[in-house]
Design a protein around this nucleic acid. Structure first.
Length: 300
RNA sequence: GCCUCGGUAGCUCAGUUGGUAGAGCAAGGGACUGAAAAUCCCUGUGUCGGUGGUUCGAUUCCACUCUGAGGCA
């Protein structure tokens, strides 16, 4: 069976460096599974690999769209499998690197996205309905159409309620089977998780945010904000939304930095939660001497 | 040496006219099917500085003591 190596972990876990070393060692290429590095111009705040690094090792799925262009998991799934296929044809074992749980899920599990595409007009309509009649109204509407879906979604989870309705009420929609954790078995996935003890990870995150500021995060965000405004979803990413608040004059720069650090820590925690439940993942601590050796032996 | 004000959750503090305590921040756990760095849910046992006393009962009142800040000598 064709091998696909997956290197995942929370932000600042050092997974990118390891992945690059591994790719060089195996003479193969990387596929980024990172929902923010998809966007052009979002470099510093997403800790995107530098141009030099990208020359050293080919990185796919980076700089795919502009900040105001839509991009979804489904797009990721489709594109990534295309690249996986190409690399296998060249006799390379692709390496997926990233921290976006849903993106990795879309490769490693059997996620069947329905035919119902994003319908922004519909979403806007639903948002307006919420403003008018309250969220329970929409939730009850969902309960009537698909009780199973409603049971799985919390009544406060606005985005999921809207998407569920979008699927039910638009072309190609309808109820869908729910089997979130059905592993894909047509590839030989080798999953490796990188992580540090919590305290060390948090120190690394805090330091990394300081480095981003030194590298000119404010300037990067300012340019994007001036071009695209603050509404694109991409600019809701951590490091971007906080700096935009600062640029608008709502908070001080110190406060923005504090919030970026805090939100990154919370994010890392959520990432860890996401990955914890996949029992196939072999966890490695980058501080350990044999880390890379263990990685290699896990790939054999 | 004397006086005053503090010592309560990881931090900043509130509070109990005596019935063993709660906010903010921080933190922890979880969910996740086309926005996912998004969105959403759950979680507070802490020798109330220490010892003794009064009391049925003390974190609360009293005494002593340790400790921090300020003031007076």
């Amino acid at each position: 069976m064709k091998k696909v190596i997956v290197i995942l972990g929370p932000t600042a876990s050092g997974k990118s460096d390891v992945a690059m070393c591994l790719a060089e060692h195996m003479n193969t290429q990387l596929i980024s599974a990172d929902s923010a590095q998809i966007y052009r111009g979002m470099d510093i705040g997403t800790a995107k690999p530098t141009k030099e690094e990208q020359t050293r090792v080919m990185h796919h799925m980076i700089d795919i769209v502009d900040v105001d262009e839509p991009f979804t998991v489904s797009d990721f799934q489709e594109n990534a499998f295309g690249i996986i296929c190409d690399l296998h044809n060249y006799n390379m074992s692709p390496i997926i690197v990233g921290g976006t749980g849903l993106y990795i899920h879309s490769l490693v599990y059997h996620l069947d996205f329905t035919k119902t595409q994003t319908n922004h007009a519909f979403r806007d309509k639903m948002s307006a309905l919420i403003a008018e009649k309250g969220l329970d109204y929409l939730y009850r509407r969902l309960e009537k159409k698909d009780a199973g879906a409603a049971a799985r979604i919390h009544p406060n989870d606005e985005k999921r309620i809207i998407r569920a309705l979008e699927v039910l009420e638009n072309e190609g929609g309808g109820e869908r089977p729910y089997d979130f954790l059905k592993p894909r078995e047509d590839y030989d996935f080798r999953l490796f998780g990188f992580n540090f003890p919590r305290e060390i990870l948090y120190d690394r995150i805090n330091q990394r945010v300081d480095i981003m500021m030194e590298k000119g995060l404010v300037g990067e965000v300012k340019a994007l904000y001036e071009t695209y405004g603050s509404s694109p979803v991409a600019l809701k990413a951590i490091g971007y939304k906080e700096i935009i608040s600062y640029l608008k004059g709502d908070i001080s720069q110190e406060e923005a930095v504090r919030l970026i650090k805090r939100n990154s820590r919370h994010f890392a925690k959520r990432q860890i939660t996401w990955f914890k439940r996949d029992k196939r993942i072999i966890w490695l601590d980058p501080q350990e001497k044999n880390c890379f050796k263990n990685l290699l032996s896990g790939i054999e």
